[in-house]
Structure formats: structure tokens, C-alpha cells
Computed example of a mutant assay.
Amino acid sequence: MSEMNEFTPDLFELIDEEGNKKQFELFDIAEINGEQYFAMLPAIEDDNFLDSDCELVILKSVEEDDEEILVSIDDEDEFETVSSYFMERLQDAFEE
């Protein structure tokens, strides 16, 4: 990897249930209980980012038809465990 790419954020385009596309920046990846999860924050798209919602999106990696896809977490207990982990990591990142 070149030096220039080391500091370039990993961006993902996510599509919600209504078909709306939005850019997200990868914050963290973690393996929890044998599953892989991705935490993302909305990408900064303009100068008003401080006034926008900064929701943390957490998705689970699953394999479907021999392809890795990211899906929402439907199980409440699983979501609580994973979101607690990422929220602690996010808080630590802001304290640094």
C-alpha cells in the first residue's frame, strides 16, 4: 500500500430500505463471537458536518452465494453486544 493510501478513508456506499444511497466511512472492524462486524460513520460531504447526525452504523458480514455482503443485525441481544463494543471504541477514539 502506498503512503498516500494509508491516510485515505475507506468509503462504502450503502443503500437503505427506501433505495437512498449514502456514503459512509469505515470506523472499525471487529470479530466478536466468531462473526465479523463493520462500524461506519457518515462520510463528511460538506462543511456542515458538525450540524449533522453522526449515527454509527453497524453491519454484520455474511456470505451469500459465495459473496461477502453486509447486513443489518436483527437479533437484539447480538446488536446490544456489538454496539456496546463499538461505542466503547468510538469513545476511546474521541478521547485520544
Score class of each variant (00 low, 15 high):
Phe49Ala: 07
Ala43His: 08
Thr8Tyr: 02
Glu68Trp: 05
Ser84Lys: 12
Ile15Arg: 14
Glu95Arg: 03
Ala93Cys: 11
Glu80Leu: 09
Cys54Ala: 10
Asn33Pro: 04
Ser72Val: 11
Gly34Leu: 08
Phe94Thr: 12
Glu80Asp: 12
Glu31Leu: 07
Phe49Lys: 04
Asp10Lys: 14
Leu14Trp: 03
Asp77Cys: 06
Gly19Asp: 00
Glu55Trp: 00
Glu17Asp: 15
Ser2Val: 06
Asp51Glu: 11
Glu13Phe: 06
Val62Gln: 14
Asn20Pro: 00
Leu11Arg: 11
Glu55Asp: 14
Asp47Gln: 14
Asp16Arg: 01
Met87Arg: 13
Glu55Ala: 06
Val57Phe: 08
Ala93Ser: 14
Ser52Asp: 13
Glu13Ile: 15
Met1Lys: 10
Glu35Gln: 14
Asp16Ala: 04
Glu76Gly: 01
Val71His: 06
Leu26Cys: 08
Leu59Ser: 00
Tyr37Val: 08
Glu64Lys: 14
Val71Gln: 10
Asp66Gln: 09
Ala93Tyr: 11
Asp75Ile: 00
Gln23Ser: 14
Ile44Glu: 08
Gln36Phe: 13
Phe12Arg: 15
Ile15Pro: 02
Asn20Lys: 14
Ser2Leu: 11
Phe24Gly: 01
Asp10Asn: 14
Phe49Asn: 03
Phe27Ala: 11
Val62His: 03
Glu96Asn: 08
Lys22Ala: 14
Leu41Met: 15
Glu95Pro: 01
Val62Trp: 06
Lys60His: 07
Glu88Asn: 10
Ala93Ile: 00
Glu76Thr: 04
Glu67Ile: 09
Ala43Phe: 02
Gln23Gly: 00
Asp92Val: 01
Phe12Gln: 08
Met1Val: 12
Ala30Phe: 02
Thr81Trp: 00
Ile32Ser: 07
Phe7Ile: 13
Pro9Gln: 10
Ala30Glu: 14
Ile32Gly: 05
Glu55Leu: 02
Phe27Cys: 05
Ser83Glu: 12
Glu45Met: 11
Val82Glu: 03
Ile73Pro: 01
Asp53Gly: 00
Asp16Glu: 02
Asp53Leu: 07
Glu55Pro: 01
Glu63Ile: 14
Asp53Arg: 09
Phe94Ala: 12
Asn20Tyr: 06
Lys60Leu: 04
Phe86Ile: 05
Gln23Leu: 15
Met40Ser: 08
Asp46Tyr: 06
Glu80Val: 06
Leu56Ile: 09
Asp28His: 15
Pro42Gly: 00
Met1Gly: 15
Lys21Ile: 07
Phe12Ser: 09
Arg89Asp: 05
Gly34Cys: 04
Leu14Ala: 04
Asp16Asn: 15
Ser83Lys: 12
Gln91Trp: 06
Asp66Trp: 04
Leu70Gln: 03
Phe7Gly: 10
Asn5Phe: 12
Asp66Met: 05
Gln36Trp: 12
Glu55Arg: 09
Ser2Glu: 08
Ile15His: 03
Glu35Lys: 15
Asp10Ala: 13
Asp74Asn: 09
Thr81Asn: 07
Asp10Val: 15
Phe86Gln: 03
Asp75Ser: 02
Thr8Met: 13
